[in-house]
Amino acid sequence: MLNVENGRVDLSHGAGGRAMRHLIEDIFHDAFDNIWLRAGNDQSAFAVSGGRMVMTTDGYVVSPLFFPGGDIGSLAVHGTINDIAMAAARPLYLSASFIIEEGFPLADLKRIAESMGVASREAGVPIITGDTKVVERGKADGVFISTAGVGMVPDGLDLRADAARPGDAVIISGSIGDHGMAVMSKRENLEFEAAIVSDSAPLHGLVAAMAEAGGRLIRLMRDPTRGGIAATLNEIASQSKVGFHIDENTIPVKPEVAAACELLGLDPLNVANEGKLVAVAAPEGAEAILAAMRAHPLGREAALIGRVVADDDCFVQMSTSFGGFRIVDWLSGEQLPRIC
């Protein structure tokens, strides 16, 4: 039996023997419990109806593993669900793969697995298959998680990165920079006691409400994770070959996040989010989509932050709160490593 309270992961937990069986059953199956895992196959079968599917995968290496508002486990569930949801798809199933460093406390592993189980049940997206590997001490940092997911796209919707057109509205679902600064506030060598909580959350419910209100008038959506909304808007600009004109005054930033950014010399536009989306919508749909977002708990602070403009240089320009103009650029190099 596993000594979850005081035990540590050792190499036998990845060796394919009885110890590995115990680890998988006592920690992962217990936390994720569902009929697919109980069936005990190396893969899980599920039936699908006709239509378009999406598939995505993502690796999680966040440091620290536990942060205000979440942990690597809930993040691994939310992040992959959100990548599916950005196609306006309904997420169906997830997989989870763990690379665990020898010596990692079993209690922490259990806590992470339980957090994943809760996140997946709350989102209604079961984890139906997985894998576990253990590597020698020093070859990983605690635990790395990789999740993949599949989802179904509703009939008639086809969101594409190159679909933004001049005149389209740009909408953000809420305040920016919360996740990045929450993680930053817990870094070992950074001791500011700010009450900043990660926004990590599954966005497919919000997206469903938006799709119902806006349908085909939603051109595309992105979740602005690493690189923040600055990177997201620049990505869309170059893929759609358009520019953006956004207004700094309309972008929601929590005062504590703004203050922490100020202290560290960071720009909230570059800081990661894990529970926000940027949507580009046809102008005639913007109002209805915004209203639907604001009626959803994860979109209460949704705001229209600007417009798509014709621009051969694909510049993202921002009128500053001060009354001037500036470019919003990609970040050079790494601002905050291992944020997700």
Binding site: G167, R307, V309, A310, F325, R326
Partner: peptide, 21 residues
């Protein structure tokens, strides 16, 4: 200049009236 102002380098005024409001 590059990060915030390079539209100036191209002799462009911000927006240059091209925004479709």
């Amino acid at each position: 200049h590059w990060t915030y102002r390079r539209f100036r380098a191209k002799g462009r005024l911000a927006d240059a009236g091209r925004a479709v409001a």
